[in-house]
Structure formats: C-alpha cells, structure tokens
Design a protein around this nucleic acid. Sequence first.
DNA 1: TCGCTAATGTACGAAACGGTACATACATTG
DNA 2: CAATGTATGTACCGTTTCGTACATTAGCGA
Lengths: 207, 207
Amino acid sequence: MVQSRDAERTRSDLLEIATEIFSEQGYSGARVDEIAERTRTTKRMIYYYFGGKEGLYLAVLEAAYRRIRETEQGLHADHLSPVDAVRRIAELTFDHHHDHPAFIRLVSVENIHHGQHLGKVESLRDLGTPAASLLDEVLARGRASGELRDDVDAVDVHMMISSYCVFQVANSATFGFLFGRDMLAPDVRERHRRILGDIVVGWLTAH
Amino acid sequence: MVQSRDAERTRSDLLEIATEIFSEQGYSGARVDEIAERTRTTKRMIYYYFGGKEGLYLAVLEAAYRRIRETEQGLHADHLSPVDAVRRIAELTFDHHHDHPAFIRLVSVENIHHGQHLGKVESLRDLGTPAASLLDEVLARGRASGELRDDVDAVDVHMMISSYCVFQVANSATFGFLFGRDMLAPDVRERHRRILGDIVVGWLTAH
DNA sequence: TCGCTAATGTACGAAACGGTACATACATTG
DNA sequence: CAATGTATGTACCGTTTCGTACATTAGCGA
C-alpha cells in the first residue's frame, strides 16, 4: 500500500461517499459494503470511525445540516427594503435547494424514518432558529414601515417557502412522471423561481 | 382452521397491511415477514398473489394512486365563481393530504427510489391530467371574466398547491423538530389551511 | 360424491448483510 | 531506534431476509 495514513482524509472520504449513497438509496436501502467499496478504504474504517451504519448516517446528517446553517448565516438582508429582502430570501432559498439535492433527499429519508435519528444529534437542536429570526427581523421592519402585512408569522412564511423549494427537488421524479414536466430543467427552474418570489411578495404585501 | 377461503379478502388484507408498512418504513425498510405476520394469512400468499416484495409494492402504489384519482374525479367546481373555485380546490387538496398521510409518505418513498417503480405501472400513466384539467378549466373561466390573471399555467398552480400540502405531511417530523411546531395539530392545521387559500387566491387575482 | 384446481400452510435454503476478531503496518515520541 | 498507540487490512461469523419446494385442504363442477 503506497497510500500514506491520513485519518482526516479517510474520515471525510467515508462521509462524502456515505452522503451520496444514503441520499440516493435511503437509510435502509444503503449498503455498508457498497459505501466501503466506493471509498479508498475498507468497511473496517466505518466501524472504527463511526461505530456502525447508524453512526455513519448520523454523522452524514449532522454534516449536511451544518453546511446548510453556514449558508444561512451568510445571508444578510439588512441593506434591502423589506419587500426586496423577502424576495431575496425566497430566491436564495430556492437556489440553495436546487443546488443541494443530496441534502434535500436526506431530509426526505429522515422523514420516512419519522426523524428518529435527527433527535439523537444534540448539535442540531434549534437549528431552525437562524432562518426564522432572519425572516422575523425583515417582517418586523416591513410591519413598522407599513410595507408588509402584520398578521403573519415568520415560521409560517419560512414553511411556505421551504415547501415550495423542497417539493421541486424531492418530488421531481413522481411529479415529472405524472405531469410530463422536468422540474429541474433550467428554463422551468427559472420560471418557478420567479413565481415563488411573486407569490411570497404578493402574499406579504396584501392588506 | 375455521376461516374459510376467500381469495379477494386475502388479497385486500395483504394490500392494506402492506400499504401501512411500506408507508411507515419505506420500501427497503419494510420486511416481507413482518407484513405477512400482521395479516391473517402467511408470507406464501404474497408470492402467490403478487409475485414478490416488489410486486406487492407496485400493487400498493397502484391502489393508492387509484384511490386519489377517484377523489379528484368527485371534485366539481362548475357551480362556483373562479375565485371561490380555486380556493375550494386548494382547501380540498389540503384536507385530502392531511387525511391520507400514508399515501403522501408512499409518494416520498417512491421519490427516494427515483420513481423507478412508478414507471413500471402502466395504468398510472397520465394520472395527473384530471387534476390539471380541472384547474385549467377554472383558470380559463377566470381569465375570460377577468377575475383571474392570464399568465399562469394550471400545472404550475397545481404544483404550488401540492408542494404546500405535501410538505406539511411529509416533512412534519424534521420541521417539527427544528422549529418546535407540530404541523399536524388541529389549530395549526386550520391556520395553514386558511393561509394556503389566501396565498393562492392572492396570487391568481393579482394583475 | 368424486376428482380436480384454486388456495393455503410449513419448513427450509441460499444469499445478503451488518458487524467483529485478529493480525499488522505506520508514525510519533521518548 | 525502540516502544507504543493509532490506523488499516483480511477474513470470517451469525443473523436476517427474500424466496421456494413440497405438502395439504377447501370448495366447486361433473
């Protein structure tokens, strides 16, 4: 073996491949042997670093959520008017979902399992708050200036935006099949992006 | 064995339990033995009637989609104004999703597997058209009367409504965990239902 | 009522699968 | 440069899991 030892590299290699396979095949559908085969190391290392299949899955989940949190924290809307800010938030959320399908699929997988693993990862508690408070702040500004309606809740707005974005990525297979429409095609994506912005702005500016 | 033979009953018993288990555990997570154990018959019958695990899953999928089609076909909106009609469609879709979580979860499961099974069921081709054409008709009426905007596509409207409804059921576990909110609680459900109607009507009546 | 077929039950097999025991090589440190 | 613990590879084990061979029973038509 020419390959020199590199614990961190082995760990991240395992995590990367595992993320791909768990998101593609689901938790139960993923095979430990297949994950190992596609890395430059062996199955033994999964047990060495993560304890087992579930431990690896938890690590994948945590890493994926951590990445999304970083993206959210890099999102600033202070310099925009409330109306522009909500549109920007909606559009960036939209882009983020389309650009990270593996993460969205992982969330679906976790929901199939009733979120039973998510609850085991302490570090993910209250992970939603940044997104909600950013929206909350923008809504408060809009409420004060009279540009946005005053009877909506930040979490409800976030949920509406998320649902629209998640659906496109998570349900593209069945929806595409039933309606003969590829939701991931560039032109369709562009139209949906604009529509989402219009809907959100229209909703929040109505009085 | 007092139980008399009843092929149809055995078949439907298997289908019912399989629907529950596949929707709860996913395709790979479901166990043939567990399904069999929870029916009044044996595993042997799964192979006798459905050929195997995949055949059973396909039958479950087909039955579930058939049921939803029947519901959709029973939805009439001719007697309502275009605006009332879209709100009614949105609200009934919302109710239908909340009332049939097993079906929604099955769709998620199928998407995890990239819709690979759905494509094998010939009878499900163009299953989406009824829903789209109902909306199309209402949109046409609204366009003619000037009550609804004329630059929206029925499938896009359907997608927006579906995404909102699907999310609440399919992602309640992770969303509930991250935001500490139970989307299936009666009062929350009632608010979300109203919000959806408001959003859709607001969107389609804007000019 | 007799026989034939649809329907059902039992027991078992082969492969897949998650996991582990054991040996070993590398690298760091004293 | 010896010693020690980290990191890695190989081979294997026990169980689970899908599937099937074989036997049997119930009911229907002749």
